[in-house]
Amino acid sequence: MFLERINEQLPLHGFERMNLTQQGIFGFVKQEEEQNSCVIFINLPDELPKNVWSIRYSEQQVKAEIYFEGVAKFLFVYITDEPDKIRCLCEDNFDAHWIIARNERKLLIYENQLDNYCNMKDIIEGVLVENKPQKKITAFGTIGIIGINVLIYVIMYWLCTAEQRNELIDNTGLFWPAVTYNHEYFRIVTSMFIHSGINHLINNMVLLYCIGSYVEDSVGHVKFMLLYFVSGILAGVVSMSYNIINNQLILSIGASGAIFGIVGALACFIFLSKGMIKDITAPRLIFFIFLSISSGLYEQDVDNMAHFGGLLSGFLLALILMLLQKRRLKKPKTR
């Protein structure tokens, strides 16, 4: 994975891939007027040879295989599980030698070595940080949203009378005349926390926990909350627009629009990461989306436009976040 990302990153910084014949050795060159800057990655086996100095023979073979007109400057980067055993290879000053500790995902540059080579230090460390396994986080955002929904349900159905409950739904549900004529824009958000009954609440919250915990663990708390609430708001806008066009006076409540936004975001992450994120496959997700949408088509009192709007909004928002992150990682750094 590290070498795949290096292969993607270096061309963005002016390097070209060299065709080398030795197995486990990958070379890149940046051709400039005064010299050719070469970076050679040597992916060492798990078990190092007894005589580590024999590794230097690979360097000589690489140099013999490459021919440049003019001056050629070399940086050799060893990738190994045992950096201490090959530290002796970094003692000379003729060529630059760095080590990547494979297990620790850490770049080692010793004192006698050049530490500023065509911005390679920043590039390598950026890729190492990107591919470093992240500790699974507690889904505080998901749990918090579920907690608020449950609390509001308890207040509505345990502490309020039927008349008070109906009045609360009428004053907080998504109803387009109240939003457009009375400017009660808060309804777009408050309607996401109101549910019509225990089955409605349980179905939404179980789904939110199952899907939301995956997405929040992948993108973090802040981005998850952004995806959830923006998707929910956009889902409400789509639902209202549909009702306005069809002149339908429908009051809509529930978190399903925002939840479908999280489903759409997860779909985006899966499809753009070769079909797998944290044990959820693309076919399984497609089957889930199909069942969720199709069940709504045949059931009454289901705001399918909010589902569609949330699903599309979540997918597009996730795509934007991924493109922004990719752009940030690919942007060359300057000193």
Rank of each mutant, 00 (worst) to 15 (best):
F28E: 08
P45T: 00
V52Q: 14
F68Q: 09
I233F: 14
G220S: 06
F308T: 08
V219K: 09
N7D: 14
Y181L: 15
F290P: 12
F290Y: 09
G264Q: 02
L151T: 05
A282W: 12
V71N: 15
T180E: 12
I145N: 11
M276L: 13
L208D: 05
F308H: 11
I66N: 11
V302R: 06
C118A: 06
A318F: 01
I253L: 08
A306R: 04
K223S: 08
S294H: 09
C118M: 00
N304M: 10
T281M: 11
I289S: 08
R17M: 11
M305H: 11
A265S: 10
K331L: 04
C90N: 02
I202S: 03
E104W: 03
R327K: 09
L128W: 01
L272A: 10
Y185D: 06
I293G: 15
G261P: 08
F26T: 05
P283R: 13
D279P: 15
N304C: 12
L316K: 08
L251D: 11
N119H: 03
M276T: 12
W176Q: 07
V62N: 02
L12H: 11
E130A: 08
E163R: 13
C88K: 13
V150K: 09
N116E: 04
D170L: 12
L324R: 01
R105I: 01
I148N: 02
E125G: 04
A64G: 14
N51R: 15
K121T: 03
P45L: 01
P83R: 05
Q325E: 09
G310K: 05
Y117T: 02
K73D: 11
K333R: 13
L311C: 10
P332L: 07
E16M: 11
V127C: 01
F74S: 11
F41E: 03
I211W: 01
A139F: 02
V179R: 06
V215T: 03
M305S: 14
F28A: 12
V215C: 07
N247W: 10
L266T: 06
G126T: 02
S54I: 14
Y228F: 11
R105Q: 05
D46W: 07
Y185V: 02
F74R: 13
S239C: 13
W176G: 03
E130I: 04
T190C: 06
W176D: 00
F260S: 09
L311E: 03
F94M: 00
E167D: 01
N199L: 15
K278Q: 14
N103E: 01
L227C: 09
C210K: 09
I253W: 04
I289Q: 06
I293Y: 10
E69A: 13
D279G: 15
C160Q: 15
V154K: 10
M120H: 03
T180R: 15
R165S: 08
V215R: 07
D95M: 03
K136V: 02
L311V: 11
N36M: 08
R105Y: 01
L321N: 05
L44F: 01
C90T: 01
I286S: 14
S191M: 03
E82F: 02
L234F: 07
P49C: 07
R327I: 00
Q300A: 15
R56E: 10
R335Y: 14
S54P: 10
F290N: 15
P283T: 13
E91Q: 09
V189R: 00
R102V: 00
V219Y: 00
